[in-house]
């Protein structure tokens, strides 16, 4: 396996309100690999991702981006290599899709210059990759939740990052677009990107991720390939007893299902 492009080492972080503390010894992202971060609500997945993206400064520990300490780097230099899609984005203005995606070129262009031909080609490609060609002139307010999510992803892709950190990117997407989305991630990983996805879609993560990190209460429960990590015990441990582990009929990869509702309970 090639060297890690991004590593998070020995981070500790807690919020002022207390109750929760993140303790992670090591998260390493490798080119060409998708890592899925899975765990119940409040496990610290998003916090870990935000620390990895340099959006949140941890109480202790460090993030290394390609041999440099991320905290010491210019934000623009970080953005050339690392793309981050937050979980919730509330745009104040009603930008058009094309305009929004163009904003992703920020790290590469001087702020006032018009986009060059090459920049516009990259914007076009990002729009194509996220299948937004027909919506490029639309203002954000006229998009569905899933389309908006894709538009923001497109703006992140326009940064041309080597590393993608995505926080629940498929939340508002229908199952078709969820699958398309993960296929796109697979495609990007094939081209050499290092991807980390925080998601509640355990099954999609199992199908598409190379590596799964299971988290609970701010720490790792397990880390490894989907087959190694997603065991009946681990799933029960993570989500409780109403969950059933099954096999994907085509790939044989583990998938999870809710247990059957007892007939008398249903009535």
């Amino acid at each position: 396996m090639s060297d890690a492009v991004l590593t998070v080492e020995n981070v500790c972080h807690g919020y002022a309100s207390g109750g929760f503390e993140l303790r992670v010894t090591r998260l390493a992202l490798h080119p060409g690999e998708i890592a899925g971060l899975i765990g119940p609500n409040g496990a610290g997945k998003s916090t870990l991702l935000r620390i990895a993206a340099g959006v949140l400064r941890p109480r202790s520990g460090q993030v290394m981006l390609g041999g440099n300490l991320l905290a010491r780097m210019e934000r623009r230099e970080v953005a050339k290599r690392l793309g981050y899609l937050p979980q919730e984005i509330a745009a104040q203005f009603d930008f058009r899709v094309e305009e929004l995606v163009g904003l992703g070129r920020f790290p590469h262009v001087s702020g006032f210059a018009a986009l060059s031909r090459k920049d516009r080609e990259i914007v076009d490609r990002s729009i194509r990759q996220t299948e937004l060609e027909n919506l490029r002139e639309r203002p954000l307010s006229q998009l569905s939740g899933g389309e908006r999510k894709r538009a923001f992803l497109a703006s992140v892709l326009a940064q041309e990052p080597e590393i993608l950190l995505l926080d629940e990117p498929t939340v508002a997407l229908d199952i078709h677009h969820q699958v398309r989305f993960f296929r796109l991630l697979r495609e990007l990983a094939r081209k050499g990107l290092a991807v980390a996805v925080v998601t509640h879609e355990v099954n999609l993560a199992a199908l598409f991720a190379d590596r799964i990190v299971l988290m609970r209460n701010g720490t790792y429960l397990a880390e490894g390939t989907p087959r190694q990590v997603l065991t009946e015990d681990a799933i029960r441990n993570l989500y409780g007893t109403d969950i059933l582990l099954h096999r994907h009929p085509q790939s044989g990869l583990p998938i999870v299902l809710p247990t059957q509702v007892e007939p008398e309970e249903a009535r």
């Binding site: 993206a53 970080v78 050339k80 984005i89 930008f95 904003l103 992703g104 920020f106 790290p107 940064q159």
Partner: peptide, 21 residues
């Protein structure tokens, strides 16, 4: 700072992600 304000309008996290200090 006008170019940067475009990104601030997307929220602090998104702006940071796009490379804005």
């Amino acid at each position: 700072n006008a170019p940067e304000l475009n990104h601030i309008a997307l929220g602090e996290e998104m702006a940071t992600g796009h490379g804005v200090d």
